[in-house]
């Protein structure tokens, strides 16, 4: 089921959390809501779930075209997974998952509930822990119980708030791959909030990038990474060098028109030896960090002594035979410039 957000505004006192945000979440896709903290992404998720009201007189939330703006959370048929899971601490895993079925007006028969719960626990690979209490589970297990509980009510949309935020790095990686595979199995429209760009780019079908109460860009991971729509997106997704366009004449930058800034990713910088007649931005190599498959070079521009980072393969590094304090030239394979007045 698709979700449409139309002109939603949310203010807390004088603080604007969402400034007339519109968004269409595609049916059956795994969509990431990505942004730094305070960008409004969790507020948007909670408004879609019905856990927060948008400001009076602002727009609508539609589920598959149907206006649900005034439908209470319990009747929107959304599954919501909270950042800290919000498992009912006095109930076992089984009881947690069964809760949504037991509080229904037409409560299914006991055997049917048990059957559904066990199928869900099997789906999230927690069958053996049905009688445990939340306090007896690891973070990753709690996360999956929360997921099973949200799925028990057969939601049409699944919403996850920082689903991996409270986990340690290793479990995080495992679980996000698991979530990707899981989504491929159930094909439920899923929207998850994250501040981790690596996480969003790795598992989402589509990424929605938010900043300061607004949506900056929507697209597939490749689109947003390769063609950032704004300086903010450029800087938020991975490392980037910001160079004055004036300095780049002849360095291969897009169309340096004398003003503005040019954005270039470290791996889009080509490093060549400094030789007479060669084109490119002259720079002095200051440090080489060669631990890892890629070598990171820290360079200093000759013109203005500002730092530039470049990434080249180890093989390339060996071929060039570079050393610290060598004079080199930099060429840009791919770069992007934005009008100067574009606020970052």
């Amino acid at each position: 089921m698709s979700v449409q957000v139309e002109n939603i505004r949310k203010t807390f006192g004088h603080y604007t959390a969402l400034a007339d945000v519109s968004l269409a979440v595609k049916s059956g896709k795994l969509t990431a809501l990505l942004g730094p903290s305070g960008s409004g992404k969790t507020t948007l998720l909670r408004i879609i779930a019905g856990l927060e009201h948008a400001d009076e007189g602002s727009g609508q939330i539609r589920f598959h075209g149907e206006d649900v703006t005034h439908v209470p959370a319990g009747r929107r048929r959304v599954g919501f997974v909270f950042q800290h899971y919000a498992l009912f601490r006095h109930m076992t895993v089984f009881e947690n998952v069964a809760f949504g079925l037991k509080v229904r007006r037409e409560r299914p028969a006991r055997a049917e509930i048990a059957d559904r719960v066990h199928r869900l626990l099997k789906l999230v690979q927690l069958e053996s822990l049905a009688e445990r209490y939340p306090s007896q589970l690891s973070g990753g297990q709690r996360q999956r119980v929360a997921l099973a509980r949200a799925l028990a009510v057969e939601p049409k949309v699944l919403l996850l708030d920082e689903p991996f935020g409270a986990l340690d790095a290793k479990v995080r990686k495992e679980l996000r791959r698991w979530l990707r595979r899981f989504h491929d199995e159930i094909h439920l429209t899923t929207l998850f909030v994250t501040h981790d760009q690596e996480e969003a780019l790795e598992i989402a079908d589509e990424v929605v990038i938010m900043n300061q109460a607004k949506i900056e860009q929507v697209g597939t991971p490749q689109e947003v990474y390769d063609r950032p729509a704004s300086p903010f997106v450029y800087q938020f997704l991975g490392n980037v060098n910001v160079l004055p366009a004036a300095a780049l004449a002849g360095a291969g930058a897009g169309r340096p028109d004398g003003g503005g800034l040019v954005y270039v990713r470290p791996h889009d910088i080509e490093v060549v030896p400094h030789a007479a007649g060669e084109s490119g931005l002259p720079a002095i190599l200051r440090y080489i960090h060669a631990a890892g498959p890629q070598a990171r070079l820290t360079l200093e521009q000759v013109v203005n002594r500002e730092t530039v980072e470049a990434e080249i393969s180890r093989a390339e590094l060996d071929r060039l035979g570079l050393r610290a304090n060598d004079l080199v030239r930099l060429r840009l394979r791919q770069s992007r410039s934005f009008a100067e007045d574009y606020a970052i």
Partner: peptide, 24 residues
């Protein structure tokens, strides 16, 4: 959060109070 979770799962206000808040 637990009360909100109960609401998204379709519990009514009283159900939320008796089954989630009170035991806690």
């Amino acid at each position: 959060d637990e009360e909100y979770a109960a609401l998204t799962l379709g519990a009514s206000g009283w159900q939320t109070f008796w089954r989630i808040t009170l035991p806690n």
